[in-house]
Write a protein that binds this DNA or RNA. Structure first.
Lengths: 311, 311
DNA sequence: ACTTATCGTTCTATAATTGGAACAATGAGG
DNA sequence: CCTCATTGTTCCAATTATAGAACGATAAGT
């Protein structure tokens, strides 16, 4: 009974196929094919039902997967325990995050982490669509979300809450009829993140808890926050963005905040991990670093901002 | 990173030495020696301190042993879970069949199977369109078909051949011009299964092998055999249905068979499975049960029919 | 109704692992 | 002090697993 067979099997289940697993592990798929067959022969039961096109896990296969995955996690813990004792923080940490997070928050965090941990390799996957952490081999994901995340199989840690504000250029600000009433902002040209819905509107929350839905006219929609920011600076319209994304522009005066008493959302930023892998020292180190550094950056560390302003 | 190395290491720790472990496992000790060294190289730590006389576990080795033993225990649990399932008739069997088959044949078979196998869960998927067994996780499909099935990757077992007959109500039967000539039935209102083609016709086969194609006028088309049967009983027209579907109505006198010497098709009923290898006992039990019971029901078990008639 | 891309499996020369004997190191018993 | 049995390690022919191409099957794209 070869324990590695179980490992290969788990990889195939998680990656969703022989080829996918082979690519991910950088091994030929002929090996996987043979090893799984041997495992099935040993157990004298079919674990994967396969055609040339798709692979599905049988009832027994699911059962075996659950336990085997658990066993493998223990092995990783065993290895991690040894590495910890030998003070070797090394290995690869794969981090998933949104493009915006990459550009405006992790750009400050990751380089420092790499400096502090010279033997760690970081692979960053910036993407705006939430990927399957396990299938894509992601160790840590940093995501913003409005409501509580449903996925229960993931470990989640709250990092910070951020505020979204409305911004526009000073020049555009002058053209507003009234700059203190949400309703008055209706039907101004809007620069929106992502793909706009038919009837786009801003959901604003006032300082005293009151809410307002302001319909707007989509002038430009993009996945990229930088581009939106530039468009706003060129007076093309109003844009709702996370406060930390626009901080430097506001300080530099190229953007001004519209409706300073209202927010355009305050999502929770969470850190997600698949199961126990977080105990690997390199991942643990990344976790610690991020938990320690990210909230200050998202909140807009007051001291640092002031320092920059003084210079 | 070879997981088996960890297994060998644990054995050596538990048996107290390379030779003892080798004897216990019935493998040469040269293997153990090499594997432990490789494990130590991978972890870049010494796990066992060995002289030619005595073996002691290092501090890190003890730590690794604790976790690795734990992981191995999980693997045993995984294997045990599979063994249990392969030794017990239990688990879930997913059965795909046509709606008609579900209503008029499996309705008698499945309850008995469930009674006989109390630890088995059956999931029935009644659908008139052939689904992808593997993609949809179907263990067993029961299908009727005229010609040989093409799909080669599936295991197929012939269960029975059934006959389709023409039926109508006694009252409707009286209105027929001639009740013994296929040609004379042309253009009577027809109740047809499925979606009717532009030119619908019955393909009839006589007792002596002669064939006839009789065009007909579609009055009502439905996917549901029950509804068609009721419509026929209400004298709405002629209907072609499997004999076993209408047996009780014929015995009760609410339907009569038209052209008793002619059949309207005699499809093969087959049982399909994704693979023969590593069958779960529960599925095997279902197979056996179905092969044993279904042919009699489809053929219209004479004894049982008579018994029911006598009561 | 084609072509194309991708899937899992199979084939075979090649590379890695293995078993068993020989090995040096060690301590027990006389 | 000197066997001698037993320890873990090393060596090399024989076995076994492997990589990579070829393969048949299957969807999707055109």
């Amino acid at each position: 009974m070869d324990l590695n067979d179980a490992f290969y099997f788990v990889q195939i289940v998680e990656k969703g196929g022989f080829s996918a697993a082979a690519r991910s592990l950088n091994i030929p798929k002929s090996r996987l094919s043979r090893r799984v067959r041997r495992l099935e022969d040993d157990l004298s039961v079919r674990l994967l039902q396969r055609t040339s096109r798709i692979v599905t896990t049988t009832e027994v296969g699911k059962e075996y997967y659950r336990h085997a995955k658990d066993a493998l996690a223990r092995f990783e813990i065993a290895e991690a325990a040894v590495r910890r004792k030998t003070n070797t923080i090394e290995g690869t940490v794969t981090v998933s995050c949104s493009v915006g997070m990459a550009q405006f928050a992790l750009d400050q965090i990751l380089p420092r982490f790499l400096q502090d941990n010279p033997r760690v390799i970081v692979v960053q996957r910036a993407s705006n669509q939430m990927e399957d952490l396990i299938k894509d081999g992601v160790d840590v994901a940093i995501r913003g979300h409005m409501d509580t995340l449903p996925d229960s199989s993931l470990i989640q840690t709250r990092l910070a809450r951020v505020e979204w504000h409305l911004f526009c250029s000073p020049k555009f600000h002058d053209t507003l009829d009234q700059a203190d009433d949400p309703i008055a902002l209706a039907n101004y040209p809007a620069l929106v993140l992502g793909r706009p819905r038919a009837t786009h509107q801003w959901s604003l929350t006032g300082g005293d808890g009151q809410t307002a839905s302001v319909p707007c006219r989509v002038r430009f929609a993009s996945d990229d926050m930088s581009t939106l920011k530039n468009a706003a600076a060129l007076s093309l319209g109003l844009v709702a963005l996370p406060a930390y994304v626009c901080r430097s522009e506001v300080e530099a005066g190229s953007l001004v905040r519209v409706l300073p008493d209202w927010t355009a959302g305050h999502p929770q930023i969470s850190l997600l991990m698949p199961s126990r892998r977080g105990l690997l020292p390199a991942i643990e180190a990344f976790l610690h670093h991020t938990k320690h550094e990210l909230p200050a950056i998202l909140a807009g560390d007051a001291n640092q901002s002031k320092k920059e302003a003084q210079r």
